[in-house]
Amino acid sequence: MIQYKEVSKRFADGTLAVNDFSLVIPAHKTIVLVGSSGCGKTTLLRMVNRMTTPTKGSIEIDGEDIAGVDPVALRRRIGYVMQNSGLLPHRTVTENIATVPTLQGMGKAEARALAMEMMDVVGLERSLSDRYPSQLSGGQQQRVGVARGLATDPNILLMDEPFGAVDPIVRSELQRELLRIQSELGKTIVFVTHDIDEAFLLGDKVVILEKTAKIAQQGTPEEILENPASEFVAEFVGANRGKRHLTIVENDNSSDRFVLVDGLGRPAGVLELSASQRAGSDVQLKQPKANSVSKARSVSNKTVQAGDA
């Protein structure tokens, strides 16, 4: 568990990045901090491993104030993954993955074996083990970054826009991979992104931030979509427009499949009702008219539109 207690951060140049921020992050969950650039989300993340020190307030991990912990020791027990991987260019894949274990005195052979295991975990071919980062694709580099973050088997994994610099196809691949890894390992993940789709896809809980890290809303993706706390949130998640605002197109062949269109009128997916849903349907479908769009019910559902996430 990570707990922010009335934390503020003012940079040396006077900029107020975080203002009186409090949050409890439960263990073994993925928490996504999401907001536009400059909202202080990255600063919040960096406070956890003391890459940044709050000017006010405190942060506790499992009840222990981290201000009293040696930063180097703290960082070694927290996994960290950043954009552009931050790998050491003069070290091979396995050497990079095993950097921290090696620093802690693990022998060469053991470190390599560990690195190989981690490669399996993140879905990297073992044949890449002796490559240098510059010889890898962007997606592969990020996988190595994740493997390095997991190498010490930390309880906490900090992820700072880790998939921000790769192309959309690779990004969605990496996102699915992270979901799989998390379902197996159950780490406490703090994930920072400016992409609301990514936040809804990955987060057990999503925290939407405004300027100076003011919490606009926190909750599960469903809660936020169902009941945006403010105009800002509604606008930010796009619940009332565009591709998140889905409506059902009536069909006249009385099947259980309905085509959904988004706010721009583009087909976005298919809604299929199970028999029981059909029976006790609270979806009151009006008498269909050919080719017309009904407003029977707006569906805001991330599983329906997951295909384009």
Partner: peptide, 13 residues
């Protein structure tokens, strides 16, 4: 690269 150094520090060097 500054980001290489930053990340080395962040993982606990």
């Amino acid at each position: 690269s500054r980001s290489t150094i930053y990340s080395a520090r962040a993982i606990g060097m």
